[in-house]
Design a protein around this nucleic acid. Sequence first.
RNA 1: GCGGUCGUGGCGAAGUGGUUAACGCACCGGAUUGUGGUUCCGGCAUACGUGGGUUCGAUUCCCACCGGUCGCCCCA
Length: 426
Amino acid sequence: MINVPRGTQDLLPGETEKWQYVEEKFKALCHTYNYHEIRTPIFEHTELFQRGVGDTTDIVQKEMYTFTDRGERSLTLRPEGTASVVRSFVQHKLFGHPTQPTKLFYIGPMFRYERPQQGRMRQFVQFGVEALGSADPAIDAEVIGLAMNLYRSLGLKSLKLVINSLGDVESRNNHRHALVEHFKPHIHEFCSDCQIRLEKNPLRILDCKKDKDHPAMQTAPSILDYLNDESQAYFAQVKSYLDHMGIDYVVDKNLVRGLDYYNHTAFEIMSDADGFGAITTLSGGGRYNGLVEDLGGPETPGIGFALSVERLLMALDAEKIDLPIDQALDGYVVAMGDNAVKKAVEIVYNLRQAGIQVDKDYQGKKFKAQFKAADRLKAKFVIVLGEDELAKQVVSVKDMTTGDQQEIPIASIATEMKQLIQGGKA
RNA sequence: GCGGUCGUGGCGAAGUGGUUAACGCACCGGAUUGUGGUUCCGGCAUACGUGGGUUCGAUUCCCACCGGUCGCCCCA
């Protein structure tokens, strides 16, 4: 027997309905925020992620699904969405379109080669949005608000929004310098990862779980102290907009994002819910001024976020929220006797043409078993067709909720069924 | 990549170094010759992850591998 590859999953009926529901919710929300869908390939030139996501990141160093195709090209299954969207933005010169900023959303699978655990798969699905072409702090707040809005509209309560500012290039460089100076004298007391980080990306030392109790950690220079006036003002405005929008947040000066392209605003939304797994981050995002340029476009600011659908559904589960998914079938045709069974095929066909959702037996089941099947499928109405009915050219329609039964002529079955179904809903 | 834990029918779950490997759910049929959700009776199922080893004999003991799961690192 061949199973799915490690870290991937089949979504079966019963589960797919939930996915469809949250996808529709997300699309509708993007519509109200005036974001438009973009669909990019699932694989890209490896170089895109090396340059876009950053050579020093874990994603690029050890998590990419990279392969060589028959033309000797190095390609990579996308590990995240932003690089592709920005590539597309540049390639198609969307920066030249009259309406700016360019507001895009995407839905699709991402791939990272990691050891799977709860909330972490090798193939996972992200919803994401990107707003390109505006350096207005209000759009940072808009993007954060959209994310919070989605979670809240689905009923999630145990949410924590964490934000930070990574500052502009100048601020980051000053901070980086200060970090190296600060940790250098103690670095031999830190874990091996941190010793490497000191050279490559000292900001990430702040993120280390192993060394979090080291005294030098507590006294480490905060990025917030190194923000220049402009960066400070920007961060203050983002927070102010969030305040006005009534969105609660906590500032975590150690929030560092795993991708190199972030600057200024960085944020994560986490779940507080009991019984949630070790991984609590539901979504993350931030500003990436400079990325468009890095990928060959004109100087263009950008901000976006991505959320994991798997984790979203986990969060709903943890908070015991049932999505309003209608599983009931409108009607089920139960037939008995050779002639009636044949006639049932015709009736089902006609009802479906009229847009009524019906089904029938295809297992050669006995009358009683057909009723059982109707019950299991949660049919609202059972349409009974036997020799008696056939002789009178009618069907007996039973309302499965009330138990009431009435005869209706086969000639007008579609219109009468429609009325019954609508009446049943009211 | 590292560590814990687990691997028995479609699902859940007992169990044993030795004749036919429990049970529950689900499914099918009957009681009820044309009316579901309850009950009772009966029936059904290619099941011990894979490969080695120990043994007269392994589903059981040992080893390796594979897979699931949870955690570490890191992230969505």
